[in-house]
Design a binder for these strands. Sequence first.
RNA 1: GGGGGGAUUCCGGAGCGGUCAAACGGGGCAGACUGUAAAUCUGUUGGCACAGCCUUCGGAGGUUCGAAUCCUCCUCCCCCCA
Length: 433
Amino acid sequence: MNFIEEVKWRGMLHNIMPGTEEILKEKNVAAYVGIDPTADSLHIGHLVSVMLLKHFQRAGHRPVAVIGGATGMIGDPSGKSEERNLLTLDTIKHNQEAIKKQLEKFLDFSEDKENKALLLNNYDWMSKFSFLDFIRDVGKHITVNYMIAKDSVKKRMNASGDKDAEGLSFTEFSYQLVQGYDFLHLYKEHNCKLQMGGSDQWGNITTGTELIRRMLQGKAYALTSPLITKSDGKKFGKTEKGNIWLDPEKTSPYEFYQFWINTGDDDAEKYLKIFTILNKDEIENLVKEHKEAPHTRILQKKLAEEITVMVHGKTAYDTAVTASQILFGKGTKEQLETLDEKTFNDVFEGVPHFTVKKEIIEKGINIFDLTAEITPVFKSKGEVRRLIKDKGLSINMEKFLNPDEPINKKHLINDKYIVIRQGKKKYSIIITE
RNA sequence: GGGGGGAUUCCGGAGCGGUCAAACGGGGCAGACUGUAAAUCUGUUGGCACAGCCUUCGGAGGUUCGAAUCCUCCUCCCCCCA
């Protein structure tokens, strides 16, 4: 299966220039995607482009990721209704380093590999350009007429009749030209004949192919992926807390795993095709199995496993699974007791912690004083009382039903913690010291 | 400037002298169901020493055995007329 067939059945193909498939039959053809260094981590919205590169490499071609050090200083007007904040050079440098480490999880950069991946920063070639040189050597070849015909520009022009249009600065207007020049540069230096990206990038990419045609009489190609949608119409890749990042500091492996596990049935197959490298047969089998027993949620589990292992590694994945089992009520007191301190902390990361003097527990204390007086686990003792009455309070995974039962030493997990659960999934931890 | 209406527990909104910690709806919390979903159903939703007591109905006083409910003043909101 060649690259195009691969992305096609995976539903990753939105638009493609005629002739693209043929050019890939040539040797040593490279393709690139651009990545904006707006943060010091990729988020899962970037993943489609990254997966395009991964498939590209697996098909034997050379993938190139271009960090937009220069373009990031300008801001792509595509899809934005307002002028963007500019990033400083230092920020971009920092972000680039972090992103590079993440890309290494998807792409093979090793020197001995014939089609090793490349990571470039367009700042390296753009920064040498003087303004005059650029507008003379590059700008000369593209007309403003051509540039303003692009949707991304049109949407921002007041003349479009859109009342919300805020206009765009010359800086942002120039964006497509700068990105187009990137393509030209890569075409010349790295035999890069294809640029890929999200469907919103089509306009920018074609400016590049146009530039290559006019300046070098060369032929370059474009391929875009559809924007990822969710069947419920909500935006993909966001939770109440915001973006899902690849950086474990920003989104813990547990949250990351949970994000994928929570995929709806309607989306799971689609995501499995896009975000994993499982082949057609494997996915079809999973879909079949899932249909026979929907409640076991095979698709979601596999999806979460594949991606979490790829991004965070097997160990982090195992911890996330354990954490999920414990946090979603299937855990037991015994399971809690077997956790080592590190895993315990991982599992209960992000859960409110309260510290209490150990003597207090050793002496024994009633549940009301412990959770509503000396710690603010609950708002009031009445709330605790109600919760017990409603069978909604658990201590160390065991239902706490008798309000008169004192909390003491025997409730300490590993001689240190008490795990308090309200309802099904709201946790608090009391730590003794 | 004149006239009228209103301010209630997280929100909306009843209550108009005792039976009011205050109807009802929403939201929240919990339980059942379930796939860590949606829907549904049930309970609960001021505090505490919880079959009892304490503090709440814009604020301050007053009438009364007793006030969210009546009176006075104050603050803020809305409507109508000029």
